[in-house]
């Protein structure tokens, strides 16, 4: 299928119609929103922050193996959990996390799961989340 070349027109008419078309956008609603005051539309399945159910984690290290860029490291955490004998819990570096969701998918007990939360700005110059912080709500972590 051959594409159609635009027809030859009288000079300046096309420019004028383009100007009118551009200027008519003045009366349309802006598509951008002022972020902190107005929340943008947040799709239902949007995922960012990795959370952890400490009681479900069995310390199998699958998430560490599957993480493509080594954001997850297993950390020793002494805690009462009969299923997790090795006392290993994931420790996530959000600075390198690419939200590939492989860890959520591979986790045999669905202990790791991703949440809506994406406002993870912190005053601390590190994105490392310890297992305990992963288990907490984002608001509590900030405190």
């Amino acid at each position: 299928m051959e594409v159609k070349e635009p027809k030859r027109r009288i000079p300046l008419v096309g420019i004028l119609s383009g100007m009118i078309s551009v200027a008519s956008h003045l009366f349309r609603k802006p598509v951008t929103v002022q972020y902190p005051e107005v929340r943008p539309y947040e799709p239902e399945r949007f995922r960012f922050r990795i959370s952890l159910k400490l009681d479900d984690c069995v310390g199998c290290t699958l998430c560490e193996q599957v993480c493509p860029n080594g954001s997850i490291k297993m950390e020793k955490l002494v805690r009462e959990n009969p299923r997790n004998k090795r006392m290993l819990y994931p420790d996530v570096n959000f600075g390198t996390c690419t939200v590939c969701r492989n860890c959520e998918e591979i986790c045999p007990t669905t202990a790791i799961y991703l949440t809506h939360e994406f406002e993870t700005a912190r005053t601390k110059n590190s994105f490392l989340y310890s297992p305990l912080e992963l288990a907490m709500d984002e608001k509590e972590v900030k405190k």
Binding site: A23, H25, L26, P30, V31, V33
Partner: peptide, 13 residues
């Protein structure tokens, strides 16, 4: 401001 509104943005505010 005009450029922003024509481009469907908010502009300086």
């Amino acid at each position: 401001k005009y450029m922003a509104r024509v481009q469907q943005r908010i502009g300086p505010n």
